[in-house]
């Protein structure tokens, strides 16, 4: 199947728009050209895209395919997938506190420590998993196939 009919930028109008966008980016880049930290910023910029597209995405896709292999009468997949997704999202967003990164600046700024965060994240994860397991148990109980199969006695 050829797939070159899908929409993408085309024509002089789009070229002009793209070049205008690059002009703004170039202007912004020129403004930080003399910043000694520019190479670091560029590295983080590219690393963010690469880390998402070529590390995070393949990792969660592979994990999800493992989960999706599970085949049960009442589909279990989402009862595993969703709590893990919630836990993973929180870990990804709040990992500095959970892993206690930047403890010194944290203490300087707040007068406190990051100690509570790891426990709280683990407790939230446990809460997500148990809630999901409870819901699954409820669904299994409610959809017990009594109506279709003949009782044994």
């Amino acid at each position: 199947m050829t797939r070159h009919s899908e929409p993408h930028a085309h024509g002089p109008w789009h070229t002009v728009v793209l070049l205008a966008g690059f002009a703004v980016t170039a202007y912004a880049t020129l403004r930080v050209l003399d910043d000694p930290d520019l190479p670091r910023m560029l590295t983080w910029f590219l690393a963010a895209a690469v880390a998402h597209d070529l590390v995070l995405f393949p990792a969660y896709t592979a994990a999800d395919r493992l989960i999706a292999r599970i085949d049960t009468r009442v589909p279990l997949v989402n009862h595993i997938r969703i709590p893990l997704l919630a836990s993973g999202l929180l870990f990804l967003m709040f990992l500095p506190g959970i892993l206690r990164q930047g403890g010194d600046t944290f203490h300087t700024a707040t007068g406190l420590t990051q100690d509570p965060f790891l426990h709280r994240w683990l407790l939230l994860t446990a809460l997500f998993l148990t809630t999901s397991a409870t819901l699954y148990t409820g669904r299994v109980t409610l959809t017990r196939p009594t109506s279709r199969t003949t009782p044994r006695r």
Partner: peptide, 22 residues
């Protein structure tokens, strides 16, 4: 979260990054 692991000025980077995004 006060994690300055990136080692550059947050304000500067976040501001110019915003214009690249815009």
């Amino acid at each position: 979260q006060y994690d300055y692991v990136f080692g550059f000025s947050f304000y500067t980077a976040h501001y110019w990054g915003a214009w690249v995004f815009i």
